[in-house]
């Protein structure tokens, strides 16, 4: 009982080569930069773009197998999809939208309406049954889109950036609802996002796609603790260095070195959380073993934190409180000293 997809396809500039397995009950979140192939992978699973080479099976049923020229068309796949902008049919009422899939699958009009009504009640939208989609709020539209996809009882649910169309204040509430509704679905769930918060809040497993290939996959804690690419590091907001372990320090490929007690030997990644990076106006004295000079490249305000980008060997991002930033009198291009405790450098093999 699972999804097993081995997909190779070329679409314009993109060459997608992905092997993805997912078990029922698991919420897999696909993350990756724009154009990495996340949405294309979803569309391939739904049968909306043909696979050049590969095989897709769901619960033992083959949906696509290029070696045997098997290709189940979209409308016959047990797949439900929630699109980025929901794509509710504007000419149909809310309940007709939800009942559409059932009607398409041959369910009688009255039966489809009845089931549609049950879904709307579950989503708390019974009052909107006869309204046209254009009168709904973003969050309501999303719930209708979800109900429409779930009403056909698919074995695989695909969600393409289900929160991207919402404005920030609405997101938290809708995300909570989405999490609750998704929890009731027993099939395989795959969700695409580029919002770290969404990924961390919803995912059982995170799969990172870059340039058409999976670069990392694992549970949330694992991926956030040990990012294996610059994108993932930025995604989870940490400094990532790649280099070579030489006993008790790591020599960074792009220049510089960091002392780390468990560096060992060989190719390795080193992660430093920005809040573990200290900034000083003068050369610090005392215990930190990693101290170097740099210049301030810029400051980004993020809520109650200031992320300071520092150029040096190596370059690094530090996170300080606004009062601290004020006290340090940070100006772009100004010289600073950076220090990181050796114990705050996490090293793991590449």
């Amino acid at each position: 009982m699972m999804l097993d997809a081995d997909v190779r396809l070329r679409l314009g500039e993109l060459l997608l080569e992905v092997r993805l397995k997912a078990a029922p009950g698991q919420l897999v979140v696909l993350v990756g930069p724009n154009g990495a192939g996340k949405t294309t992978l979803l569309r391939a699973l739904a049968g909306l773009v043909p696979v050049d080479e590969g095989r897709i099976s769901l619960n033992g049923e083959v949906l696509e197998d290029t070696s045997r020229e098997v290709r189940v068309p979209t409308e016959r796949r047990p797949v439900g999809m929630v699109f980025q902008n929901y794509l509710l049919f504007p000419h149909l009422s809310v309940i007709e939208n939800v009942a559409f899939g059932l009607r398409a699958r041959g369910v009688s009009r009255s039966e489809a309406r009845q089931q549609g009504a049950v879904w709307l009640e579950r989503m708390g939208l019974s009052a909107k049954a006869d309204a046209k989609p254009r009168s709904l709020s973003g969050g309501q539209s999303q719930r209708v889109a979800l109900a429409r996809a779930l009403a056909t009882s698919p074995s695989l649910l695909l969600l393409d950036e289900p929160l991207a169309a919402l404005d920030a204040p609405a997101r938290a509430g809708v995300r909570r609802d989405l999490r609750r509704h998704l929890a009731t679905f027993q099939g395989v769930r795959i969700l695409v996002t580029h919002d770290p918060l969404e990924a961390v809040a919803l995912a059982d497993r995170i799969v990172v796609i870059e340039g058409g290939t999976i670069v990392q996959s694992g549970d949330v804690a694992e991926v956030t603790a040990r990012p294996r690419s610059r994108y993932v590091a930025e995604f989870v907001g940490v400094n990532l260095f790649r280099g070579r372990g030489v006993g008790d320090s790591i020599e960074i490929d792009t220049g510089g070195a960091l002392a780390a007690p468990d560096a060992r030997w060989g190719d390795a990644f080193a992660v430093v959380h920005p809040h573990a990076v200290s900034i000083h106006r003068k050369e610090p004295e005392g215990s930190p073993r990693n101290v170097w000079r740099g210049t301030v490249e810029g400051c980004d305000f993020e809520g109650d934190r200031v992320r300071v980008r520092i150029q040096g060997t190596p370059s690094i991002v530090a996170e300080v409180t606004p009062p601290a930033a004020n006290e340090l009198d940070l100006v772009d291009g100004g010289p600073v000293w950076v220090s990181v405790k050796a114990t705050d450098v996490v090293v793991y093999p590449a």
Binding site: A46, L48, P73, E75, F83, L87, G101, A104
Partner: peptide, 22 residues
């Protein structure tokens, strides 16, 4: 928007039904 037609397909509607209903 071609997406509407794709959405209808994922809901189980064949080409003719998509054309007629969407």
């Amino acid at each position: 928007e071609r997406g509407y037609e794709e959405a209808a397909a994922t809901l189980g509607a064949g080409r003719w039904l998509v054309f007629r209903r969407v």
